[in-house]
Nucleic acid binder design. Structure first.
Lengths: 117, 117
DNA sequence: GTAGCCAGTTTCGTTGAAGTAACCGGCACC
DNA sequence: GGTGCCGGTTACTTCAACGAAACTGGCTAC
């Protein structure tokens, strides 16, 4: 047999949360959307098909709290608000790219398997 | 400004689901647990601190449906059941390793930020 | 003066993952 | 014959994420 599993394998993780909070429906997609630079609220609404403004606000606020995103409001007219990845948020891009690649390669497989069952 | 966001950026994704279903609380951890070879039910219970047998069963069944995991029952005494990653499941290891590395490097940062707010 | 954009907020309801606790049959061990 | 392990199952509850729909206030453009 293989070595026994370390009982403390996940000791460093917050038990109450996923290993990393990239699994909720929107965070991953938002990071991808902000990859190329700052984006405005309504600009983000469109590609995230079906997200409601309420949920987008909540997601962005959560990412702001985690230091992944900065919100910048300009006192212009019409008002302009921009969201951008922080340097910390940018560190997520590389590992997420690996996930995106995997998804691109295997999503169809997954969909087939699910449809078949 | 940067190029406009492609409105169909996520057209290939199932709108009703996260980009990839690795974000629920346990799937990522389970893949890591199965990295080194097949594991038994009770062996998985321990490092996943606090998971209940019910939730472990549900998670494993979901991963089985998705073709990530195989369940093998041996007609022995005491009964033995082993869970192992399929070749398809193994393809997840590489991108997940990137996420694990990120988590290891930045979890403390994240915890500090969260504690401060 | 009415219509619309911008960046949201508010209220209410739904859904599904997760948790709690108890229970199961078969066997081994003492 | 009582206890405990093994791999679960069942019933019930809780909670956060998600969603639909309407609304806001300040401004501009027609």
């Amino acid at each position: 047999m293989t070595r026994p599993l370390d009982p403390d394998l996940f000791a460093a993780c917050d038990d109450a949360r996923p290993m990393i909070r990239i699994g909720d429906k929107w965070t991953t997609k938002l990071v991808v959307c902000l990859r190329d630079g700052p984006r405005r609220f309504n600009e983000l609404l469109r590609p995230l098909r079906g997200i409601t403004p309420k949920v987008l606000t909540e997601s962005l606020r959560a990412m702001e709290r985690d230091g992944l995103v900065v919100r910048t409001a300009y006192a212009e007219n019409p008002p302009r608000v921009e969201y951008a990845l922080t340097p910390f948020g940018r560190t997520l891009l590389e590992p997420l790219a690996a996930i995106c690649t995997w998804t691109a390669q295997h999503q169809s497989t997954l969909n087939e398997v699910r449809a078949a069952s």
